[in-house]
Write a protein that binds this DNA or RNA. Structure first.
Length: 227
DNA sequence: AATAATACCAACCGCGGCGCG
DNA sequence: ACGCGCCGCGGTTGGTATTAT
């Protein structure tokens, strides 16, 4: 069955997004919500295909995206989940609040796949020596870039800057605020990781974990929200 | 200082799943 | 039951930053 291309490519812009485009997209979604990607660009006045808009939003502009280096705990979790799920990046990302499938996929391809291939998960001491070269990113967040560079037309060079600013998932923020004002994300993450550790297989009953994990997925509820 | 090689990551592409008429 | 269109996923590509020579 032949499929028509998702959108006509004629007159469509490609490549890096400009601050102006980012702003237009964010603004549109803020007002109208996400979805209807096909018609979104037209309505938002963007010369982009819907797919591109969706990707940009999901991987970059979403306010709940947590940017910055993947922590060791997150890394361990990714490795474990990958062992269970394979390249199901969206599922894996679903277990890592604030992380996108694209980000995890990239991280896996550039760091973890090499490391995991040959040996088992490294110890923390190994980790430092094994760790692939890290760029000395200067800590820009893209959202900062967006706000500070809103001189339109200028392309946002989103890459090559690892940022230190953390964007909170609203759910996390809510739970965190339930916990207490200054316990914030760190505590939340600890709690979250504890809950993962409770769920993750201790080698023997992987099946058990797998089924409870799948049930969890089926319920459509992130485990971290429960704890 | 210049150039090449490598690492990293945003964005693109094509396909499959699913819902709807 | 079938075809069509939209959405989402996973693999791949391309451009830039960083490091090595």
């Amino acid at each position: 069955m032949g499929r028509s291309p998702c959108c006509s490519k004629e007159g469509m812009k490609r490549g890096a997004w400009t601050a102006h485009e980012d702003q237009a997209l964010s603004e549109y979604i803020r007002i109208h919500g996400q979805g209807r990607w096909r018609e979104l660009p037209k309505k938002a006045g963007l010369k982009r295909c819907g797919k591109s808009c969706r990707l940009r939003w999901l991987n970059y502009l979403r306010p709940d995206i947590k940017r910055g280096n993947i922590t060791h705990d997150e890394e361990e979790l990714i490795v474990k989940l990958h062992r269970l799920l394979g390249n199901r990046w969206s599922l894996i990302a679903g277990r890592l609040p604030g992380r996108t499938d694209n980000e995890i996929k990239n991280y896996w391809n550039t760091n973890l796949s090499k490391r995991v291939e040959g040996s088992s998960t490294p110890t923390s001491s190994q980790k430092n020596s094994d760790q692939p070269r890290k760029k000395k990113y200067m800590g820009h967040s893209t959202n900062e870039a967006v706000t500070s560079q809103v001189q339109a037309v200028q392309v946002v060079r989103t890459k090559a800057y690892r940022c230190t600013k953390v964007f909170l998932n609203p759910h996390i923020a809510k739970v965190s605020s339930d916990l207490s004002m200054n316990q914030g994300t760190e505590l939340k993450q600890q709690v979250e990781l504890k809950s993962y550790k409770g769920l993750l297989p201790c080698s023997s009953d992987e099946e058990e974990y797998r089924s409870s994990f799948m049930m969890d997925l089926n319920m459509g509820i992130m485990a971290y929200l429960i704890f």
